[in-house]
Write a protein that binds this DNA or RNA. Structure first.
Length: 380
DNA sequence: GAGACGTGGGA
DNA sequence: TTCCCAAGTCT
C-alpha cells in the first residue's frame, strides 16, 4: 500500500518538524494517562483554546481517577458547563468508575480494556494507548484524515467508516519504531497548525515536497466530506418564574432527564410550541395562555406576566427560537381540581425542581442558552 | 448507516 | 450574516 519511500519520508520529516514546532499544551507536560484521557475527551469536536481552561479546572477539581469516580455527577457536569456534548462528562465519570472497579483505579493499556471504557471509541482508544503508553496504535481523527487524504491523495468520503479503518491501517504502517507517542501527536499537530481545512500552509509544510494533493493541485478540495444537514427549527416558550412567600426573590429551575439533549443539566421551565406559533411573531396573549396551560400540565402552576425577551440558540442538530416570559408562581389555585393535580405532579418530581437566588446559579450546571437568558434578565 | 449530541470562533 | 466547523461516540 503506497510507496515505501513516500511513507518513510513522511514519517521522518513529520517527527523532525514536530520536535521543533510542537505546542506547549497542559496535557503534554506529563505522561499521566489520566491527563491524556481527560484532554482527549474534552478535545472531541472542540478547539484547543476552548479546552485549556476547562482542562486546568477539571484536573484541579478531580486530580485522580479515584476522585472523579467518587464525585457527585452534578459536580462533574458543573465542571463541564459550557463545553457542550455533556454526555462526554457523564461517560468520563462512568468510565472512571469502571477503571476503579475493574482495574483498581489504574488506567489500563490493553486495546480491549481501553476500548471497553464508556465514551472511548476507536480514535480515543488509539490516542490514549499511543500518546500515554507509546504503543503503536492508530488515532485517526479529522486532522489525521485530512493530512493523509492530501498527502496520499485518498479521494474517499471521510464520513464513511470504511475510509477511517483504511486510514487506521495506513497509520500503523507509518509509525516509526518506538515513536508512537510523538508520531500520533505530530500527525494531529500538522493537521492543526499547517494542513488546515482551509488555506493550508503548504509553503511551510515539512512534507509538501512529496504531498500528492499538492502536486496535483487538489489540497484545497480534500478531504472529501459529505455536508451536514442544517439544524431543524424548534419553537419554545420559556418561563422565568418568580417565587412568592418563602420563595420571594427566587426563581424556579428544573433538572433535565438523564438521557437525551443536555441530559442532567438544569434549566428554566419551558414548553415546545408548533412551528406555526413561532414566539417571535406570536402575540403575547396567546403565548402566555399557552405557556400557562402547558406548564400546568407538567405540574407547574404559574401566571405569565409579560414578555421579557426573545432568544435563539443553535445546537448541532436543532435551532431553538425562544420567547421568554416573566411569570409568578400561582399561589391561588385556578380550580381546586387543577390545583390538586398540579400540586401532586409537582410533589412527585420535587427533587427535579429548585427555587434559587441568582447567586446560586454557580452551584448548578446550566446549558449556555439558559445562562445567557438569566444573565440578560438579571442585568436589566 | 444515519441521526443525536453543544459551543464559540473564524472567514 | 451565514456557514462550517474542531482532536468523536453512541444508538
Amino acid at each position: 500500500m503506497y510507496n515505501t519511500e513516500l511513507k518513510r519520508y513522511f514519517s521522518q520529516e513529520l517527527l523532525d518538524w514536530y520536535e521543533v514546532n510542537k505546542r506547549d499544551l497542559p496535557w503534554r507536560r506529563h505522561r499521566d494517562p489520566y491527563y491524556i484521557w481527560v484532554s482527549e475527551i474534552m478535545l472531541q469536536q472542540t478547539r484547543v483554546d476552548t479546552v485549556i481552561p476547562y482542562f486546568h479546572r477539571f484536573i484541579e477539581r478531580f486530580p485522580t481517577i479515584q476522585s472523579l469516580a467518587d464525585a457527585p455527577e452534578d459536580d462533574v457536569l458543573k465542571c463541564w458547563e459550557g463545553l457542550g456534548y455533556y454526555s462526554r462528562a457523564r461517560n468520563l465519570q462512568a468510565a472512571a468508575r469502571q477503571v476503579t472497579e475493574l482495574y483498581g483505579g489504574v488506567m489500563p493499556s490493553g486495546k480491549d480494556e481501553v476500548s471497553g471504557l464508556k465514551g472511548i471509541g476507536p480514535y480515543t482508544s488509539g490516542a490514549i494507548r499511543s500518546i500515554a503508553f507509546n504503543i503503536p496504535a492508530a488515532a485517526v481523527d479529522g486532522n489525521v484524515m485530512r493530512v493523509l487524504s492530501r498527502y496520499f491523495l485518498i479521494e474517499e468520503d471521510i464520513m464513511k467508516v470504511k475510509t477511517r479503518t483504511k486510514m487506521e491501517e495506513l497509520v500503523l504502517t507509518l509509525v516509526p519504531e518506538g515513536r508512537a507517542s510523538d508520531f500520533t501527536q505530530a500527525l494531529m499537530e500538522l493537521g492543526a497548525l499547517i494542513c488546515t481545512p482551509k488555506s493550508p500552509k503548504c509553503l511551510v509544510c515539512p512534507v509538501m515536497e512529496h504531498c500528492t494533493a499538492r502536486y496535483e493541485g487538489k489540497e484545497e478540495s480534500l478531504p472529501i466530506k459529505t455536508k451536514a444537514k442544517p439544524p431543524r427549527p424548534e419553537y419554545r416558550l420559556t418561563a422565568i418564574v418568580e417565587g412568592t412567600g418563602v420563595h420571594e426573590g427566587k426563581i424556579l429551575i428544573r433538572k433535565r432527564p438523564s438521557t437525551g439533549l443536555l441530559a442532567g443539566m438544569w434549566e428554566l421551565p419551558h414548553v415546545i410550541v408548533p412551528a406555526s406559533a413561532n414566539p417571535a411573531v406570536m402575540p403575547e396573549e396567546p403565548a402566555m395562555s399557552h405557556l400557562q396551560g402547558a406548564l400546568l400540565e407538567e405540574g407547574i402552576p404559574v401566571l405569565p406576566i409579560g414578555h421579557v425577551m426573545d432568544a435563539e440558540h443553535t445546537f448541532s442538530h436543532i435551532h431553538w427560537n425562544m420567547g421568554v416570559y416573566r411569570c409568578t408562581w400561582q399561589d391561588a389555585p385556578i380550580s381546586s381540581l387543577q390545583a390538586a393535580e398540579s400540586a401532586a405532579a409537582y410533589e412527585t418530581g420535587i427533587e427535579q425542581f429548585r427555587w434559587i437566588h441568582v447567586h446560586d446559579m454557580e452551584r448548578y450546571a446550566f446549558p449556555n442558552v439558559f445562562i445567557r437568558i438569566l444573565h440578560s434578565y438579571f442585568s436589566s
